[in-house]
Design a protein around this nucleic acid. Structure first.
Lengths: 194, 194
DNA sequence: TCTTTTATTCGACGCACTGTTGATTATTTT
DNA sequence: AAAATAATCAACAGTGCGTCGAATAAAAGA
Protein backbone atom coordinates (compact mmCIF):
# COMPACT_ATOMS: atom_id res chain seq x y z
CA UNK A 1 0.00 0.00 0.00
CA UNK A 2 2.38 2.65 -1.18
CA UNK A 3 1.00 6.07 -0.43
CA UNK A 4 1.57 7.81 -3.72
CA UNK A 5 1.45 11.56 -3.38
CA UNK A 6 -0.41 13.09 -6.28
CA UNK A 7 0.92 16.18 -7.99
CA UNK A 8 -0.92 19.30 -6.97
CA UNK A 9 -1.63 20.14 -10.61
CA UNK A 10 -3.31 16.78 -11.09
CA UNK A 11 -5.49 17.26 -8.04
CA UNK A 12 -6.45 20.71 -9.20
CA UNK A 13 -7.24 19.68 -12.76
CA UNK A 14 -9.37 16.74 -11.65
CA UNK A 15 -11.21 18.85 -9.11
CA UNK A 16 -11.97 21.50 -11.70
CA UNK A 17 -13.27 18.90 -14.14
CA UNK A 18 -15.39 17.18 -11.50
CA UNK A 19 -17.08 20.34 -10.32
CA UNK A 20 -17.45 21.51 -13.90
CA UNK A 21 -19.25 18.31 -14.80
CA UNK A 22 -21.63 18.60 -11.87
CA UNK A 23 -22.33 22.19 -12.84
CA UNK A 24 -23.14 21.22 -16.42
CA UNK A 25 -25.23 18.25 -15.32
CA UNK A 26 -27.48 20.58 -13.42
CA UNK A 27 -28.35 22.22 -16.74
CA UNK A 28 -28.38 19.35 -19.21
CA UNK A 29 -28.38 15.59 -19.46
CA UNK A 30 -25.05 13.78 -19.34
CA UNK A 31 -25.28 12.46 -22.88
CA UNK A 32 -25.46 16.02 -24.22
CA UNK A 33 -22.23 17.05 -22.51
CA UNK A 34 -19.23 16.84 -24.80
CA UNK A 35 -15.60 16.78 -23.74
CA UNK A 36 -15.06 19.90 -25.81
CA UNK A 37 -17.88 21.73 -24.05
CA UNK A 38 -16.83 20.66 -20.58
CA UNK A 39 -13.23 21.70 -21.13
CA UNK A 40 -14.30 25.06 -22.47
CA UNK A 41 -16.50 25.59 -19.43
CA UNK A 42 -13.67 24.67 -17.07
CA UNK A 43 -10.91 26.41 -19.02
CA UNK A 44 -8.96 23.17 -19.28
CA UNK A 45 -7.24 22.06 -22.44
CA UNK A 46 -9.08 19.26 -24.16
CA UNK A 47 -5.93 17.19 -24.43
CA UNK A 48 -5.49 17.46 -20.68
CA UNK A 49 -8.86 15.85 -20.17
CA UNK A 50 -7.68 12.76 -22.00
CA UNK A 51 -4.65 12.52 -19.73
CA UNK A 52 -7.06 11.68 -16.91
CA UNK A 53 -10.25 10.21 -18.35
CA UNK A 54 -11.21 8.38 -21.51
CA UNK A 55 -14.58 10.10 -21.80
CA UNK A 56 -17.22 12.05 -19.91
CA UNK A 57 -18.70 8.89 -18.46
CA UNK A 58 -15.46 7.80 -16.85
CA UNK A 59 -15.28 11.21 -15.23
CA UNK A 60 -18.84 10.81 -14.03
CA UNK A 61 -17.98 7.44 -12.53
CA UNK A 62 -15.02 8.90 -10.69
CA UNK A 63 -17.37 11.47 -9.17
CA UNK A 64 -19.76 8.71 -8.22
CA UNK A 65 -16.95 6.65 -6.73
CA UNK A 66 -15.93 9.51 -4.51
CA UNK A 67 -19.43 10.02 -3.17
CA UNK A 68 -19.97 6.32 -2.74
CA UNK A 69 -16.73 5.99 -0.80
CA UNK A 70 -17.85 8.70 1.57
CA UNK A 71 -21.17 6.95 1.90
CA UNK A 72 -19.43 3.71 2.79
CA UNK A 73 -17.29 5.43 5.36
CA UNK A 74 -20.41 6.62 7.10
CA UNK A 75 -21.85 3.13 7.01
CA UNK A 76 -18.64 1.66 8.38
CA UNK A 77 -18.59 4.11 11.25
CA UNK A 78 -21.87 2.72 12.46
CA UNK A 79 -21.72 -0.24 14.77
CA UNK A 80 -24.52 -2.78 14.54
CA UNK A 81 -25.62 -1.53 17.91
CA UNK A 82 -25.96 1.99 16.53
CA UNK A 83 -28.09 0.69 13.72
CA UNK A 84 -30.37 -1.57 15.69
CA UNK A 85 -30.73 0.45 18.83
CA UNK A 86 -34.26 1.24 19.81
CA UNK A 87 -33.71 4.95 19.23
CA UNK A 88 -36.08 6.64 16.76
CA UNK A 89 -35.03 7.82 14.29
CA UNK A 90 -31.87 5.74 14.33
CA UNK A 91 -28.57 7.64 14.32
CA UNK A 92 -27.53 5.55 11.32
CA UNK A 93 -30.38 6.76 9.14
CA UNK A 94 -29.87 10.32 10.30
CA UNK A 95 -26.20 10.37 9.42
CA UNK A 96 -26.85 9.00 5.96
CA UNK A 97 -29.43 11.69 5.32
CA UNK A 98 -27.08 14.37 6.56
CA UNK A 99 -24.50 13.15 4.09
CA UNK A 100 -27.01 13.62 1.30
CA UNK A 101 -27.86 17.09 2.53
CA UNK A 102 -24.18 18.03 2.67
CA UNK A 103 -23.77 16.95 -0.96
CA UNK A 104 -27.11 18.18 -2.17
CA UNK A 105 -26.10 19.49 -5.59
CA UNK A 106 -24.25 16.35 -6.52
CA UNK A 107 -26.85 13.96 -5.15
CA UNK A 108 -29.64 15.75 -6.94
CA UNK A 109 -27.79 15.43 -10.21
CA UNK A 110 -27.04 11.74 -9.73
CA UNK A 111 -30.28 10.55 -8.21
CA UNK A 112 -33.03 12.73 -9.65
CA UNK A 113 -34.30 13.61 -13.09
CA UNK A 114 -31.82 12.58 -15.80
CA UNK A 115 -29.79 10.85 -13.12
CA UNK A 116 -27.74 7.73 -13.52
CA UNK A 117 -29.74 4.56 -13.02
CA UNK A 118 -26.55 2.50 -12.77
CA UNK A 119 -25.43 4.69 -9.88
CA UNK A 120 -28.72 4.19 -8.06
CA UNK A 121 -28.14 0.46 -8.45
CA UNK A 122 -24.68 0.82 -6.97
CA UNK A 123 -26.08 2.66 -3.97
CA UNK A 124 -28.62 -0.08 -3.44
CA UNK A 125 -25.84 -2.63 -3.69
CA UNK A 126 -23.69 -0.93 -1.07
CA UNK A 127 -26.52 -0.86 1.41
CA UNK A 128 -27.55 -4.37 0.48
CA UNK A 129 -24.19 -5.89 1.31
CA UNK A 130 -24.36 -4.46 4.81
CA UNK A 131 -28.00 -4.92 5.61
CA UNK A 132 -29.34 -7.96 3.84
CA UNK A 133 -27.79 -10.67 6.00
CA UNK A 134 -29.01 -9.00 9.14
CA UNK A 135 -32.42 -8.71 7.57
CA UNK A 136 -32.48 -12.29 6.43
CA UNK A 137 -31.95 -13.50 9.97
CA UNK A 138 -34.82 -11.41 11.29
CA UNK A 139 -37.10 -12.67 8.56
CA UNK A 140 -36.25 -16.29 9.11
CA UNK A 141 -37.04 -15.92 12.80
CA UNK A 142 -40.55 -15.12 11.74
CA UNK A 143 -40.65 -18.11 9.41
CA UNK A 144 -41.08 -16.05 6.26
CA UNK A 145 -40.51 -17.60 2.86
CA UNK A 146 -36.88 -17.47 1.75
CA UNK A 147 -37.31 -15.29 -1.32
CA UNK A 148 -39.59 -12.79 0.34
CA UNK A 149 -36.98 -10.81 2.19
CA UNK A 150 -35.16 -10.02 -1.03
CA UNK A 151 -38.28 -8.37 -2.38
CA UNK A 152 -38.90 -6.71 0.95
CA UNK A 153 -35.41 -5.29 0.84
CA UNK A 154 -35.88 -3.94 -2.66
CA UNK A 155 -39.17 -2.42 -1.67
CA UNK A 156 -37.73 -0.63 1.31
CA UNK A 157 -34.52 0.60 -0.27
CA UNK A 158 -36.21 1.75 -3.46
CA UNK A 159 -38.97 3.33 -1.45
CA UNK A 160 -36.50 5.30 0.61
CA UNK A 161 -34.60 6.43 -2.46
CA UNK A 162 -37.86 7.54 -4.03
CA UNK A 163 -38.63 9.63 -0.97
CA UNK A 164 -35.14 11.11 -1.14
CA UNK A 165 -35.65 12.07 -4.77
CA UNK A 166 -38.90 13.82 -3.92
CA UNK A 167 -37.19 15.52 -1.00
CA UNK A 168 -34.15 16.69 -2.95
CA UNK A 169 -36.12 17.92 -5.94
CA UNK A 170 -37.95 20.24 -3.57
CA UNK A 171 -34.73 21.52 -2.04
CA UNK A 172 -35.08 19.53 1.16
CA UNK A 173 -37.93 21.26 2.98
CA UNK A 174 -37.72 18.80 5.88
CA UNK A 175 -34.77 18.18 8.18
CA UNK A 176 -32.67 15.04 7.88
CA UNK A 177 -34.09 13.89 11.19
CA UNK A 178 -37.69 14.32 10.08
CA UNK A 179 -37.00 12.38 6.90
CA UNK A 180 -35.32 9.60 8.83
CA UNK A 181 -38.24 9.31 11.19
CA UNK A 182 -40.74 9.13 8.34
CA UNK A 183 -38.74 6.53 6.48
CA UNK A 184 -38.43 4.26 9.48
CA UNK A 185 -42.12 4.57 10.13
CA UNK A 186 -42.98 3.49 6.58
CA UNK A 187 -40.49 0.64 6.70
CA UNK A 188 -41.86 -0.74 9.92
CA UNK A 189 -45.58 -0.20 9.61
CA UNK A 190 -46.29 0.55 5.96
CA UNK A 191 -48.11 3.65 4.90
CA UNK A 192 -51.53 2.86 6.30
CA UNK A 193 -50.19 2.65 9.83
CA UNK A 194 -49.99 6.38 10.38
CA UNK B 1 -59.66 14.62 -34.47
CA UNK B 2 -59.13 13.53 -38.04
CA UNK B 3 -58.22 9.87 -38.21
CA UNK B 4 -55.20 10.00 -40.44
CA UNK B 5 -54.39 6.67 -42.04
CA UNK B 6 -50.65 6.08 -42.06
CA UNK B 7 -48.93 4.62 -45.07
CA UNK B 8 -48.05 0.98 -44.62
CA UNK B 9 -44.41 1.69 -45.43
CA UNK B 10 -44.24 4.25 -42.66
CA UNK B 11 -45.72 1.86 -40.14
CA UNK B 12 -43.32 -0.84 -41.19
CA UNK B 13 -40.23 1.38 -41.05
CA UNK B 14 -41.12 2.74 -37.65
CA UNK B 15 -41.82 -0.71 -36.28
CA UNK B 16 -38.51 -2.02 -37.57
CA UNK B 17 -36.64 0.88 -35.99
CA UNK B 18 -38.46 0.53 -32.68
CA UNK B 19 -37.77 -3.16 -32.31
CA UNK B 20 -34.23 -2.65 -33.54
CA UNK B 21 -33.63 -0.08 -30.85
CA UNK B 22 -34.97 -2.34 -28.13
CA UNK B 23 -32.78 -5.14 -29.42
CA UNK B 24 -29.68 -2.95 -29.30
CA UNK B 25 -30.57 -1.56 -25.90
CA UNK B 26 -30.51 -5.05 -24.49
CA UNK B 27 -26.84 -5.20 -25.45
CA UNK B 28 -25.56 -1.68 -24.81
CA UNK B 29 -26.47 1.59 -23.21
CA UNK B 30 -28.58 4.05 -25.18
CA UNK B 31 -25.86 6.66 -25.40
CA UNK B 32 -23.59 4.23 -27.22
CA UNK B 33 -26.15 3.54 -29.94
CA UNK B 34 -25.59 5.64 -33.06
CA UNK B 35 -28.08 6.29 -35.80
CA UNK B 36 -25.65 4.73 -38.24
CA UNK B 37 -25.37 1.59 -36.16
CA UNK B 38 -29.09 1.25 -35.58
CA UNK B 39 -29.91 1.65 -39.26
CA UNK B 40 -27.29 -0.89 -40.22
CA UNK B 41 -28.74 -3.35 -37.71
CA UNK B 42 -32.27 -2.80 -39.05
CA UNK B 43 -31.30 -2.60 -42.71
CA UNK B 44 -32.90 0.82 -43.01
CA UNK B 45 -31.31 3.69 -44.88
CA UNK B 46 -29.91 6.29 -42.54
CA UNK B 47 -31.67 9.06 -44.40
CA UNK B 48 -34.96 7.28 -43.83
CA UNK B 49 -34.39 7.44 -40.09
CA UNK B 50 -34.29 11.21 -40.23
CA UNK B 51 -37.61 11.28 -42.07
CA UNK B 52 -39.19 10.02 -38.84
CA UNK B 53 -37.00 10.98 -35.89
CA UNK B 54 -34.46 13.67 -35.14
CA UNK B 55 -32.20 11.36 -33.12
CA UNK B 56 -32.06 8.10 -31.21
CA UNK B 57 -33.57 9.67 -28.12
CA UNK B 58 -36.68 10.80 -29.93
CA UNK B 59 -37.12 7.25 -31.15
CA UNK B 60 -36.69 6.02 -27.60
CA UNK B 61 -39.33 8.45 -26.40
CA UNK B 62 -41.76 7.26 -29.03
CA UNK B 63 -41.25 3.73 -27.78
CA UNK B 64 -41.82 4.91 -24.23
CA UNK B 65 -44.93 6.81 -25.27
CA UNK B 66 -46.41 3.71 -26.80
CA UNK B 67 -45.85 1.64 -23.67
CA UNK B 68 -47.08 4.40 -21.43
CA UNK B 69 -50.24 4.77 -23.49
CA UNK B 70 -50.95 1.08 -23.11
CA UNK B 71 -50.30 1.42 -19.40
CA UNK B 72 -52.78 4.26 -19.17
CA UNK B 73 -55.39 2.30 -21.06
CA UNK B 74 -55.13 -0.42 -18.45
CA UNK B 75 -55.47 2.12 -15.68
CA UNK B 76 -58.48 3.69 -17.37
CA UNK B 77 -60.21 0.35 -17.69
CA UNK B 78 -60.19 0.03 -13.94
CA UNK B 79 -63.10 1.55 -12.10
CA UNK B 80 -62.43 2.95 -8.64
CA UNK B 81 -64.43 0.05 -7.32
CA UNK B 82 -62.09 -2.40 -9.01
CA UNK B 83 -59.14 -0.70 -7.41
CA UNK B 84 -60.48 -0.36 -3.92
CA UNK B 85 -62.38 -3.58 -3.64
CA UNK B 86 -61.41 -5.74 -0.72
CA UNK B 87 -60.08 -8.43 -3.03
CA UNK B 88 -56.47 -9.47 -2.47
CA UNK B 89 -54.48 -9.04 -4.57
CA UNK B 90 -56.51 -6.36 -6.33
CA UNK B 91 -57.36 -6.97 -9.98
CA UNK B 92 -55.90 -3.55 -10.75
CA UNK B 93 -52.45 -4.44 -9.48
CA UNK B 94 -52.60 -7.82 -11.20
CA UNK B 95 -53.43 -6.34 -14.57
CA UNK B 96 -50.64 -3.84 -14.38
CA UNK B 97 -48.15 -6.57 -13.58
CA UNK B 98 -49.43 -8.69 -16.43
CA UNK B 99 -48.83 -5.77 -18.76
CA UNK B 100 -45.22 -5.67 -17.62
CA UNK B 101 -44.86 -9.39 -18.13
CA UNK B 102 -46.31 -9.13 -21.63
CA UNK B 103 -43.73 -6.47 -22.50
CA UNK B 104 -40.88 -7.97 -20.56
CA UNK B 105 -38.04 -7.22 -22.97
CA UNK B 106 -39.01 -3.61 -23.39
CA UNK B 107 -39.74 -3.01 -19.72
CA UNK B 108 -36.47 -4.53 -18.66
CA UNK B 109 -34.60 -2.23 -20.99
CA UNK B 110 -36.45 0.88 -19.83
CA UNK B 111 -36.69 0.23 -16.12
CA UNK B 112 -33.61 -1.79 -15.17
CA UNK B 113 -29.86 -1.34 -15.45
CA UNK B 114 -28.96 1.49 -17.83
CA UNK B 115 -32.64 2.33 -18.04
CA UNK B 116 -34.13 5.76 -18.50
CA UNK B 117 -34.63 7.60 -15.24
CA UNK B 118 -36.85 10.16 -16.92
CA UNK B 119 -39.12 7.34 -18.05
CA UNK B 120 -39.39 5.97 -14.53
CA UNK B 121 -40.41 9.45 -13.45
CA UNK B 122 -43.09 9.52 -16.14
CA UNK B 123 -44.46 6.21 -14.94
CA UNK B 124 -44.62 7.50 -11.41
CA UNK B 125 -46.39 10.59 -12.68
CA UNK B 126 -49.04 8.62 -14.55
CA UNK B 127 -49.88 6.62 -11.48
CA UNK B 128 -49.67 9.67 -9.26
CA UNK B 129 -52.31 11.57 -11.21
CA UNK B 130 -54.78 8.75 -10.73
CA UNK B 131 -53.98 7.69 -7.20
CA UNK B 132 -52.82 10.64 -5.17
CA UNK B 133 -56.13 12.42 -4.67
CA UNK B 134 -57.77 9.22 -3.52
CA UNK B 135 -54.87 8.66 -1.17
CA UNK B 136 -54.93 12.17 0.18
CA UNK B 137 -58.53 11.73 1.24
CA UNK B 138 -57.77 8.54 3.10
CA UNK B 139 -54.84 10.15 4.85
CA UNK B 140 -56.78 13.18 5.94
CA UNK B 141 -59.45 10.98 7.45
CA UNK B 142 -56.75 9.72 9.75
CA UNK B 143 -55.65 13.25 10.57
CA UNK B 144 -52.18 12.81 9.10
CA UNK B 145 -50.00 15.81 8.38
CA UNK B 146 -50.62 17.29 4.93
CA UNK B 147 -47.17 16.71 3.45
CA UNK B 148 -46.83 13.18 4.71
CA UNK B 149 -48.96 11.48 2.12
CA UNK B 150 -46.77 12.82 -0.66
CA UNK B 151 -43.78 11.10 0.88
CA UNK B 152 -45.83 8.01 1.56
CA UNK B 153 -46.85 7.92 -2.07
CA UNK B 154 -43.25 8.24 -3.25
CA UNK B 155 -42.19 5.51 -0.86
CA UNK B 156 -44.82 3.10 -2.09
CA UNK B 157 -44.51 3.74 -5.81
CA UNK B 158 -40.73 3.72 -5.78
CA UNK B 159 -40.76 0.64 -3.58
CA UNK B 160 -43.00 -1.20 -6.01
CA UNK B 161 -40.88 -0.20 -8.99
CA UNK B 162 -37.80 -1.39 -7.15
CA UNK B 163 -39.43 -4.76 -6.60
CA UNK B 164 -40.35 -4.89 -10.27
CA UNK B 165 -36.77 -4.19 -11.29
CA UNK B 166 -35.56 -7.02 -9.09
CA UNK B 167 -38.27 -9.27 -10.48
CA UNK B 168 -37.59 -8.47 -14.13
CA UNK B 169 -33.82 -8.71 -13.85
CA UNK B 170 -34.32 -12.29 -12.67
CA UNK B 171 -36.64 -13.11 -15.56
CA UNK B 172 -39.80 -12.98 -13.47
CA UNK B 173 -39.60 -16.10 -11.33
CA UNK B 174 -42.89 -15.29 -9.61
CA UNK B 175 -46.31 -14.92 -11.17
CA UNK B 176 -47.91 -11.52 -11.61
CA UNK B 177 -50.43 -12.46 -8.98
CA UNK B 178 -47.78 -13.41 -6.42
CA UNK B 179 -45.97 -10.14 -7.02
CA UNK B 180 -49.17 -8.17 -6.67
CA UNK B 181 -49.99 -9.87 -3.39
CA UNK B 182 -46.54 -9.19 -1.98
CA UNK B 183 -46.62 -5.54 -3.03
CA UNK B 184 -49.95 -4.90 -1.45
CA UNK B 185 -48.82 -6.56 1.73
CA UNK B 186 -45.76 -4.32 1.97
CA UNK B 187 -47.81 -1.24 1.19
CA UNK B 188 -50.34 -1.92 3.88
CA UNK B 189 -48.28 -3.37 6.68
CA UNK B 190 -44.65 -2.54 5.93
CA UNK B 191 -42.03 -5.21 5.77
CA UNK B 192 -42.00 -6.22 9.40
CA UNK B 193 -45.61 -7.22 9.31
CA UNK B 194 -45.06 -10.56 7.60
C1' DT C 1 18.46 27.62 -5.30
C1' DC C 2 19.24 24.81 -9.15
C1' DT C 3 18.07 20.65 -11.54
C1' DT C 4 15.08 17.13 -12.80
C1' DT C 5 10.77 15.49 -13.45
C1' DT C 6 6.23 15.80 -14.83
C1' DA C 7 1.82 18.16 -15.97
C1' DT C 8 -0.39 21.27 -19.04
C1' DT C 9 -0.89 23.71 -23.28
C1' DC C 10 -1.13 24.22 -28.19
C1' DG C 11 -1.86 23.12 -32.99
C1' DA C 12 -2.75 19.67 -36.01
C1' DC C 13 -4.15 15.22 -37.89
C1' DG C 14 -7.37 11.42 -39.61
C1' DC C 15 -11.56 9.40 -38.26
C1' DA C 16 -16.54 8.58 -37.35
C1' DC C 17 -21.04 10.16 -36.97
C1' DT C 18 -24.22 13.79 -37.89
C1' DG C 19 -27.92 16.12 -40.36
C1' DT C 20 -29.23 17.54 -44.83
C1' DT C 21 -29.67 17.59 -49.90
C1' DG C 22 -31.24 16.28 -54.68
C1' DA C 23 -32.01 12.72 -57.77
C1' DT C 24 -33.71 8.02 -58.39
C1' DT C 25 -36.35 3.97 -57.47
C1' DA C 26 -40.11 1.42 -55.27
C1' DT C 27 -44.46 1.17 -53.12
C1' DT C 28 -48.98 2.62 -51.94
C1' DT C 29 -53.12 5.08 -52.61
C1' DT C 30 -56.84 6.86 -55.44
C1' DA D 1 -53.17 3.35 -64.86
C1' DA D 2 -51.89 7.64 -62.85
C1' DA D 3 -50.65 10.39 -59.03
C1' DA D 4 -48.74 10.69 -54.64
C1' DT D 5 -45.56 9.59 -51.44
C1' DA D 6 -42.03 6.79 -49.10
C1' DA D 7 -37.49 4.66 -49.20
C1' DT D 8 -32.93 4.49 -51.21
C1' DC D 9 -28.47 6.18 -52.51
C1' DA D 10 -24.39 9.08 -52.91
C1' DA D 11 -22.49 13.09 -51.52
C1' DC D 12 -21.72 17.25 -48.66
C1' DA D 13 -19.98 20.27 -44.88
C1' DG D 14 -19.86 20.41 -39.94
C1' DT D 15 -18.59 18.83 -35.33
C1' DG D 16 -16.67 16.25 -31.79
C1' DC D 17 -13.36 12.49 -31.00
C1' DG D 18 -8.91 10.56 -29.75
C1' DT D 19 -4.11 11.03 -30.43
C1' DC D 20 0.30 13.04 -31.36
C1' DG D 21 4.86 15.77 -30.90
C1' DA D 22 6.76 19.94 -29.52
C1' DA D 23 6.74 23.84 -26.45
C1' DT D 24 5.75 25.76 -22.02
C1' DA D 25 4.76 25.91 -17.06
C1' DA D 26 4.78 24.12 -12.58
C1' DA D 27 6.05 21.02 -8.94
C1' DA D 28 9.25 17.87 -6.59
C1' DG D 29 13.82 16.50 -5.14
C1' DA D 30 18.65 17.54 -4.21
Amino acid sequence: MAEKPVDRRVRKTRAVLRQGLVRLMAEKSIQDITVTELCAACDVNRGTFYLHYTDVFELLHSVEDELLAEFERVLDSLTPHTVFSGETPSPAMCRMLELLADNADLCRVLLCQNGDMAFVERVKGVVRRRVLDEWAAQFFERGAHAAVYHYAYEFVVSGCIGMLQYWMERDMPLSAREMAAMMESFIARGVTGL
